[in-house]
């Protein structure tokens, strides 16, 4: 299921503004990689470059190469929708489709893929909701609006929607920043569970979270506003949080700099 992501010298631009400069990293299958760093340092931009969501914005483009299991994600012949099905994404704020029920939300991706058979959709909905630790809470009200759930439940609904299409990689862009500590814990538990099946890359502002959930951590930073973000250090989470190589990383994780 899970696949390996390799970035080499990735630079992302918004028009003429260079948001990240020459990022290279390898993300192994079935691991959780955390990206940390101060606001505006390009973590989210890098994340969005991986599933080609970056280019949705006008004038956005990237340089360098990004591959998934040796296949070039940015190959001009590659179908961009296929890339996004392979590399799912969970956003910062829970974004269930407001006009759809819980059930419709979960199967939205499958329906886009042309799955019509009710039994298949029902199965997928149940499995995905179970995987997302949400099934017990919503099984009696699948027809209710997805937007009527609590924030934490909505975010798990979005995770269920993402994994329902069976991606290889799941990107999470600060998935817990709008949630309370209990919901955050629920999502973190979920990440551990999903690690067996997916490669997970998560952007987070919460360093304890990065330390708790991830196997590897990448620290991004910028020199000053307007400069492109760079990957300062990328190593085992253990190493980053106990004995980082770079002074900048140490300053950041000990709270002396931000």
């Amino acid at each position: 299921m899970a696949k390996r992501i390799e970035a080499s010298n990735v630079s992302s631009y918004y028009g003429s503004f260079k948001a990240i400069d020459s990022v290279s990293m390898v993300v192994e299958p079935k691991t959780i990689t955390a990206l940390i760093g101060p606001s505006g340092c390009g973590k989210s931009t890098f994340l969005r470059s991986i599933n080609r969501m970056h280019e949705v914005l006008p004038n956005a483009r990237i340089e360098g190469s990004l591959t998934i299991d040796e296949q070039n994600i940015y190959d001009p012949d590659v179908d961009v929708t296929a890339v996004r099905r392979l590399i799912g994404m969970v956003f910062q704020r829970p974004n269930p489709f407001p006009t759809m029920s819980i059930y419709e939300n979960v199967v939205a991706g499958l329906k886009l893929n042309g799955v019509k058979k009710k039994s298949v959709l029902d199965d997928a909905a149940e499995q995905s909701l179970k995987s997302a630790n949400l099934w017990n809470e919503v099984k009696d009200r699948l027809g209710r609006p997805g937007a009527g759930l609590s924030g934490g439940q909505q975010q798990r609904l979005c995770i269920a929607r993402t994994i329902a299409v069976e991606p290889q990689v799941v990107l999470m862009d600060e998935p817990c920043s709008a949630l309370d500590p209990i919901s955050t814990l629920a999502i973190e538990d979920l990440m551990f569970k999903l690690k067996d099946r997916f490669t997970i890359i998560i952007v987070t502002h919460n360093m304890q979270q990065a330390a708790r959930v991830s196997d590897k951590t990448g620290f991004f930073s910028i020199d000053k506003t307007g400069d492109p973000g760079r990957l300062i250090e990328y190593d085992d989470t253990q190493k980053i949080f106990s004995n980082p190589n770079e002074k900048k990383t140490e300053d950041y994780i000990t709270g002396r700099f931000g």
């Binding site: 949705v56 996004r84 956003f91 974004n95 991706g109 893929n113």
Partner: peptide, 27 residues
């Protein structure tokens, strides 16, 4: 239409027209 709903559809692998159908028109 909230951008985050459009992005949700795109991130699921929707084409532009599918994105319009799943998020813009219902909204």
């Amino acid at each position: 239409t909230p951008t985050m709903n459009e992005e949700a559809a795109l991130a699921l692998g929707a084409t532009k027209w599918e994105m319009v159908r799943t998020s813009v028109i219902p909204y």
